[in-house]
Simulated assay, not measured.
Amino acid sequence: MMFDARERSGAALALGAVCLIGGSVAAATHLHGYPLIGGQAVRYGLATVFLLVWARIRKHTFIRPSPAQMAWVFLLAATGMAGYGVVLVYATSMTSPGNVGVALGAAPLIIVLVQSLLAQVRPSRSLMAGALAVACGSAVAQLSTGGTVQWSAQGFAWSCLALTGVCAVTLLGAPATKALGSLSAITYACALASGMLFLTAVITGSVTGTPVLRRPSGAELSALAFLALGVTTVVFLMWYGAVERLGTGRTGLFNGLIPLASLLALSVTGTATASLNQIAGAALVLIGVAFGLRVRKRDTPPPRAAPAEHVTGARPHS
């Protein structure tokens, strides 16, 4: 099946976003010794500044969200941003980054199932088969050379929480961006996430005596800057641009490439090497994405939207 130019650009945006997200797993390994919650607050605070600068360049007009729209933004900030940033660092400190990728690779399947449940429709066979292939390929890619994956109970639990955050980015972000436009929704969510994390860091510090922030090392500063600009600012703009072009279900398939992008980033940093299992898993993931993308947008269930009375206004360009 041939794809039009809009769909091809959507696939390119999703692929680029996934590559940057994969790098976040490698970046997170450099922040294990840095104040976690305060560091993530700085990350989203910097991302908010970057987004405001970009909005100024684009001469973007922000829409004042309604209470219902703000609820979607709040949920996105709490789970897909603040929550995900914290649990990813915890997960990579309790188990290997490759093991975290096993959980993240199941995101396409979860997204398809939840999306269909909310829309009360049956997912298409092609989309479901593609999601299953992506999830299986991601797991195969993370198998050790001995054919087994070693999980710790805590690492598995935190990896599943990270999976929840990845799914929330797509499932909760779609209604917010549909109502407000991607740039407005992402900026509001980043500002909220930064505020939530700073408040949590201050409260936690007052109880435990842990510092809210400290002067970062060179590696820590580089990791925070990459997470703020690349993984937060650029990724969210690219990802929701892909959702607009491909739909929620097909864009969600690209989540299956996150573990493979993570492996590539870890290989570049010299902390991991690709195995035969990982190459086989990569091939299966690519087949699954290609198969799932055969579904036209009209055949995929629509994302759950905010109440009609709150999205009838003209949508700004972002």
Rank of each mutant, 00 (worst) to 15 (best):
C19K: 00
G33M: 03
R304H: 07
V87P: 10
V114C: 02
V49S: 08
V166I: 15
S24M: 12
T210K: 05
I63M: 14
W239E: 02
P307A: 14
R43E: 04
T208L: 01
A41L: 06
G83P: 08
L172C: 01
A26K: 11
I37L: 06
A78P: 10
G292K: 07
L192Y: 07
P175S: 07
G80M: 00
R6N: 09
V169E: 03
G270K: 08
A141R: 01
F198Q: 05
T300E: 13
M81L: 15
L20R: 12
W72R: 02
A290M: 04
G195P: 07
G45F: 04
C160N: 12
F226D: 12
R298A: 01
L172T: 00
L293V: 00
V18H: 04
G23T: 12
L199E: 01
G173R: 11
S126F: 08
P108K: 06
V100R: 08
A272R: 07
A174N: 02
A103T: 02
Q142C: 12
T251I: 08
G205M: 00
T92W: 07
R122P: 01
S152F: 11
H30S: 12
G181F: 14
M196P: 14
L109R: 00
A5T: 06
T48Y: 07
T170D: 00
V42Y: 08
Y240Q: 05
F236Q: 05
S126R: 11
A168R: 06
A135I: 11
S9R: 12
G209F: 06
L246M: 01
M2F: 12
G270T: 07
I63E: 14
A193H: 00
E244S: 08
G288E: 09
W151A: 03
Q154N: 15
P211W: 02
S206F: 15
G281C: 10
D4K: 11
Q69H: 10
A261D: 06
N99A: 14
T273G: 09
S9W: 09
A68E: 02
N277C: 03
S267C: 02
S66N: 03
A78E: 00
R214S: 10
G247E: 01
A179P: 09
R64W: 05
M238H: 08
A11L: 06
R304E: 07
R125M: 08
A174E: 03
M94Y: 10
S159M: 13
T232F: 03
V149K: 01
S159R: 10
L263D: 08
A228Q: 10
Q142F: 04
A14F: 11
P302T: 12
Q278L: 10
A185F: 08
R64M: 09
L132V: 12
A26D: 10
F236P: 04
Q154L: 15
P65Q: 02
W158L: 11
T79F: 15
L253K: 05
A153N: 04
P302F: 00
S267E: 00
P175R: 08
P108S: 03
F291H: 14
A280D: 06
V140P: 04
P97Q: 04
N99W: 09
L118S: 04
G241R: 06
G313F: 14
A153E: 08
R56Q: 13
P211S: 12
E309M: 04
T92R: 05
A157T: 13
L224A: 06
I111G: 03
V112R: 03
S194W: 00
I203K: 02
V202K: 00
L237R: 11
F3M: 13
F236S: 07
L143C: 09
A225N: 02
